[in-house]
Each structure stands twice: as structure tokens, then as C-alpha cells.
Design a protein around this nucleic acid. Structure first.
Length: 643
DNA sequence: CTTAGGG
DNA sequence: CCCTAAG
């Protein structure tokens, strides 16, 4: 698939065209939306110039891209979702990667136009003192499709399905009408209701959306209003009651940009411009205030749910959206929930246990929205990463060729993407608030199967490993944290890297080890770190090379990049392997007959293990020499003679 | 510190 | 995985 990149310039807050012609896009041809997205990686210079990303830069985010790629197509098909990534590297030379849907800008502007139109009409109506309809039908089913579209451009033949956001934009203003075409034909009708308490909602909405102040502040909208807006935007109703979610979605739709804070926009000269840091503090306050003020009963449940950072890295939602198109609103909602959960604020207890200093920054949305990027620096629970988790939940199986002992073996690879994900923030959090750890874990629970702790792990064995590994994989698989117990933004990238990407072996998954303080004062590893096939293979190779028993050496040679896996671990694993290899019916010679549920370790490997074991006479007398020595020949290039 | 074994 | 006793 091709690639696009939407670039966005932070400095003037304006959308920058990334070379893709957007002007012609959105409004007219719905096709464009379904067209493949094209991405391009560029860097935004300080002066706002776009510079093609260098290879290095690309590399830097390569993992990220890899990650996205697989999902991208899904998104593409929806025709309406957008996938965004935003990576910023430094304050000065920003490396930004964004994927914007081609039609986004156009769409956006179209929407604005519509809005403006509406607004004008409203004004007109108001000035005329036209009566206002009650909002009796606020929740009416008024389907967007039924309404005539005012804007000619939009009207054209935009399939509402495809671009509901546009088609319904207008509708939005009067969607609350009972759905009668008549009324609808009078666009401004019903929406405007200045002063009427009955339709306060709408008047509110109106004012909020109005551009007089040149600003759309989703924060000010109530749930209901958000619903409306949502409907307008996406052409369908939603039952989701999570405000944050709604806001985010709407905002995303509006800007189609990822690092939208879902909060505030400024409209300038018919262009939507984002509001940036300048007013961050203000926004923050406003945001928090509003969010609590406007909270309706329905919201209560989500009160503490913080929105996923607006960065739109939430693929689930995007995907789910497509689904809900089929009426699976529930699912949509669920996903939304999940999204919220991911960054969901810790439960009360957790919060309580947090120190005050933390509490303020605790709303991820806020913090993020104010830090255009602030990846790892935001609140502990907000993370961009988890978004990927759902995705990674699906394991991808594949086979790869691995050479073991000289022969090629087809090994099934389960890539548990994102099996563990060291969240620096969490790490630091746990470190500073050990008591809160339990909660923190609950949070990351399924998502972060192995939440790892960088902070406390420097006290662990990792320290002991004075391996040169550090030089092998500087930023990825090393316990760098030792140096910076707090937060190492540098390492963030690492998290993007899918696990075991490289069969060659030097792919350690993450380096972080979760350790928990033990009663005796020592540190204890918390989770089992499943041995991956790669590791096993390396181990076997190591043993074949150095001989069983020289674990520290093997560790040094083959596991330098695996900061966890101590030599003892290797030994233990080997022991298990031995057991396994011999457990496997000596009669069948490994051809098959493996107990179900047994580790997916390929026979060949076990065979090899056995072989090695034999060579080292670690073999139980019964199974000695004979069968293996001969039969095993098929498996290896015979490195015998090592030990 | 590294190994070997038991738990 | 952890713990510990032995080189």
C-alpha cells in the first residue's frame, strides 16, 4: 500500500499540506475516500518546512510503521476512519509522522462551510424571531440520509454511507426535528432556540458550534449534544455515553488529525486550526471544569475515565467504526469502552495512593492535549501503546526458516506482539508508589500482560549482567533504566517494536523485568517470561557450542541481548528441555506423539536437545547412545566434538 | 561468581 | 522461577 503522510506543522498550528492534493479531495468524490491512502514520512523543520525523512528517521519510526501497516488496510476500507500516528522526536527538529486521510482537509473545510451556512441561517432566523421547535424529538431517529443536503458540493452524490460526516453535517443542526422533511427543508429550524430553556441544549450547542468566537469547544457540549454532533459527523446515532470518546471521535473526524486533543479548535479564515500549547493551561482547567460540570448522570460511570490520548492511535476504534456501520453500535461502544479503559484512570484507591503531585496531571487527555506529543511523559496510565494491545491480542502465526544445527527447520512462530510493554511511566509510578502497584497492574492487566518495571529493576539481577550487550542493542534490549530510573523517553521507540521481529535472534523482546520486592529484601521476578522459540533455539545452539553447564558463557554468547534470562535461567530451561526431549516417547523418535498441551517446541529442537544431551552424557542410561546418535544425524550438521 | 539441584 | 549449597 502506498503511503501518505499528513504533516502538520506545529508552529503556526495550521494544517500543512503534505504534498497530497487535498483541495480537490474531500468534497466531491467519495471515491477518494476509499482510495488507498498514501503515506510519506517527512520531518517538520523548525521553520515549518517539510523535509523528507532520512533513512535513519524512517528507521526510527519504522517499527511503528510496521505496526501500523498491518492494520492500515483495514482502516483504509472503512473509507471513513483515519489512522494516525504522531511521533515527535525533539522539540527542535521534530520528527512527525502522521497519516491523514487524503480527504480529510477537504472534508473538514466542507464541514466548516456547512456549519457556517447553518450558522448564518440561524442568525437569520433568530433575527427574524422565528419560532423555535421544541426539542421533543431530540432523540428522534431522524436519519441523516433523509435530509436534504444544503451544500451543493456535498450534495452531489456523496453517499451518506461513505461520508456521513459531510452529508449529515448540515443535518446536524436540525436533526432533532421529528424527521419530517418539511421541517428539514428549513434548515435552521428547531435548532435555534435562543433563550428557550426547553431547548437549552441546542442553543448551547449552537453557540458552541457557532463560529462567532471562532472556536469549537467540544468540552462544552453535553453528552447529548455530543451525540448529535456525532450523528452529524458520522451519519449515525451512537449510544456511547462516554463523553471523552465522543469528543475524541468527533474531533478526529473534524480534523482528521491524530493528535487532536479532542478539545479545542480554532477556526480561522474558514480553516480549522488547532489550538496549541499556548492556551494549554487554560484549556486544562476549562476542560476539567467542564467535564465535571456537564457531566450528566449517564456520565457518572465514566467520570474518571480519561480519554485515550487524542493521538488517535487507537486502531480499534477506527476499525470498530466500520463495524458499527452495520449497526453494531454495541460493539462500537464496547471498543470505546475499552479504549477508555486502557487509559482509564486508576481506581479511587489507586488515586488516593498517588501523591498529589500526580493527581493534577492525571487526566491524560489534558496532559496530552497540551503536550502535542508528550509520549512517555504523560500520566502514568495514559499510554499510547496500549491502544495497540487489542490488536496484538491476535497472535499471528507464521513459520520461518531457522537453521538449527545445520539443518533448516520450519518453525512456527507465534509472534505475540506486545506481549509485554514496559511503560516507563508505569514503571516510575510503581517505583514511587509501590503500594499502588496492585492497582496499576489491574489497569494494565490484560493489556499489559507483563507490565514491566524499569524503575525497580535496576536493583535486580539485570544489574549483575554486566554484559557488553549494552553495546549491541543500545536502546532496545538493555536495562538502560538503571541510569534513568525515572523516565527514559529514549526508550519509547523500543516499545513500538514488535516482538521477535528478527529470527536471527538478536531480537530480544523487551528488556524490562518486573520485579517485586520480596519479604527478604531481595527482588523477585514477578512474571513468568515464557521462553520463546527463538530463545530456546539460541539456548540449544549455545549448549551445542559451549556445552551444557557453561551457562554463564552461553548467556554471554547467545543471550547477551536478553537482559533477563540469567545463566540460571538458561540452566533451568535446559533442564526442562532435557526433560521434555526425553519425555517425548523414545519409541516414536519425535516424529509425532507429543502430548497435547505440551510446549510447541518443535520436535527437531527436542531431538537436538537430546542429541546434545547425549553428547554430554547427560543422558539417562536407558536412552543412551544408540537410537539418538544415529537417528539424530538427520537433524544436525553434527557439531559433535565440542564437549 | 558460577553451578547444580531441589522446591 | 526461586533459593541455596558447593566449588
Amino acid at each position: 500500500m502506498e503511503t501518505v503522510v499528513g504533516i502538520e506543522d506545529n508552529d503556526d498550528g495550521r494544517f500543512e499540506d503534505s504534498g497530497v492534493d487535498r483541495s480537490s479531495s474531500a468534497l466531491s468524490s467519495p471515491k477518494q475516500i476509499s482510495n488507498p491512502i498514501v503515506y510519506k514520512l517527512v520531518r517538520v523543520e523548525g521553520d515549518g518546512k517539510l523535509v523528507p525523512a532520512t533513512d535513519d528517521e524512517v528507521m526510527e519510526v519504522g517499527d511503528f510503521l510496521e505496526y501500523e501497516n498491518s492494520e492500515m488496510h483495514v482502516v483504509t476500507n472503512t473509507g471513513q476512519s483515519l489512522e494516525c500516528i504522531s511521533i515527535e522526536r525533539s522539540s527542535s527538529g521534530k520528527l512527525r509522522l502522521e497519516c491523514l486521510e487524503e480527504a480529510d482537509l477537504g472534508k473538514l473545510n466542507a464541514k466548516l462551510q456547512i456549519l457556517q451556512k447553518v450558522k448564518e441561517e440561524e442568525k437569520h432566523r433568530i433575527s427574524c424571531g422565528s419560532p423555535v421547535h421544541s426539542h421533543e424529538n431530540i432523540d428522534s431517529q431522524c436519519s441523516a440520509d433523509k435530509f436534504p443536503v444544503m451544500d451543493g458540493k456535498v450534495q452531489s452524490e456523496t453517499p451518506c454511507q461513505e461520508i456521513p460526516s459531510i452529508a449529515s453535517s448540515f443535518n446536524y443542526t436540525h436533526s432533532n426535528q421529528s424527521g419530517s422533511i418539511d421541517q428539514c427543508s428549513r434548515p435552521s429550524e428547531g435548532v435555534i432556540e435562543s433563550g428557550s430553556s426547553a431547548s437549552a441544549v441546542y442553543s448551547n450547542l449552537k453557540s458552541d458550534i457557532s463560529m462567532s468566537d471562532g472556536e469549537i469547544c467540544l468540552d462544552k457540549l453535553s453528552i447529548r449534544e455530543l451525540h448529535e454532533l456525532f450523528k452529524v459527523t458520522f451519519g449515525r446515532e451512537t449510544t456511547v455515553k462516554d463523553k471523552q470518546w465522543l469528543k475524541r471521535r468527533i474531533a478526529m473526524s473534524l480534523t482528521n488529525s491524530c493528535d487532536v486533543s479532542a478539545t479545542t479548535f480554532i477556526i480561522k479564515d474558514n480553516k480549522i486550526v488547532r489550538k496549541f500549547e499556548e492556551d494549554s493551561s487554560g484549556n486544562m482547567n476549562a476542560g476539567s471544569l467542564i467535564s465535571s460540570e456537564n457531566m450528566t448522570e449517564e456520565d457518572v460511570n465514566f467520570k474518571d475515565s480519561s480519554a485515550v490520548d487524542a493521538c488517535g492511535i487507537d486502531d480499534n476504534q477506527v476499525v470498530s467504526e466500520t463495524r458499527s456501520e452495520n449497526g453494531l453500535e454495541y460493539e462500537n461502544y464496547q471498543t470505546g469502552q475499552r479504549a477508555a479503559k486502557r487509559i482509564r484512570r486508576p481506581t479511587k484507591r489507586y488515586i488516593e495512593e498517588l501523591s498529589e503531585n500526580e493527581s493534577r496531571e492525571h487526566n491524560p487527555r489534558l496532559s496530552i492535549s497540551n503536550k502535542t506529543v508528550g509520549f512517555g511523559h504523560v500520566s502514568p496510565t495514559s499510554n499510547v501503546r496500549p491502544a495497540r494491545n487489542a490488536f496484538s491480542e491476535a497472535r499471528t502465526y507464521s513459520t520461518r526458516l531457522d537453521s538449527l544445527g545445520g539443518s533448516n527447520v520450519q518453525i512456527p512462530c507465534v509472534s505475540r506482539v506486545r506481549r509485554s510493554r514496559p511503560r516507563k511511566d508505569i514503571a516510575s509510578l510503581m517505583k514511587f508508589h509501590p503500594t499502588g502497584m496492585g492497582e496499576a497492574e489491574k489497569l494494565s492487566n490484560k493489556l499489559l500482560e507483563h507490565s514491566s518495571d524499569a524503575g525497580s529493576d535496576f536493583s535486580d539481577k539485570v544489574l549483575k549482567s554486566r554484559m557488553p550487550a549494552k553495546f549491541h542493542q543500545p536502546s532496545s534490549s538493555e536495562p538502560v533504566k538503571e541510569q534513568c530510573p525515572v523516565i527514559c523517553p529514549i526508550e519509547l521507540r523500543q516499545e513500538l517494536r514488535p516482538k521477535r521481529a528478527d529470527p536471527s535472534g538478536h531480537t530480544s523482546d523487551d528488556n524490562n523485568i518486573v520485579t517485586v520486592p520480596t519479604a527478604k529484601g531481595g527482588m523477585r521476578r514477578k512474571h513468568h517470561r515464557a521462553w520463546t522459540l527463538v530463545e530456546v533455539i539460541k539456548l540449544v545452539e549455545g549448549v551445542s557450542r559451549c556445552g551444557a553447564g557453561r551457562w554463564s558463557e552461553i548467556k554471554r554468547l547467545s543471550f547477551a541481548s536478553y537482559s533477563y534470562r540469567t545463566s540460571v535461567d538458561l540452566k533451568d530451561k535446559w533442564r526442562n528441555l532435557l526433560k521434555a526431549s526425553f519425555a517425548l516417547a523414545p519409541a516414536d523418535e519425535g516424529i509425532n506423539s507429543r502430548k497435547h498441551g505440551t510446549a510447541p517446541i518443535p520436535e527437531k529442537i527436542l531431538l537436538r536437545v537430546r542429541e546434545l544431551a547425549e553428547m554430554n552424557s547427560q543422558v539417562p542410561p536407558n536412552y543412551s547412545s544408540s537410537q539418538l546418535a544415529s537417528g539424530g544425524g538427520s537433524v544436525h550438521g553434527d557439531r559433535s566434538g565440542y564437549l
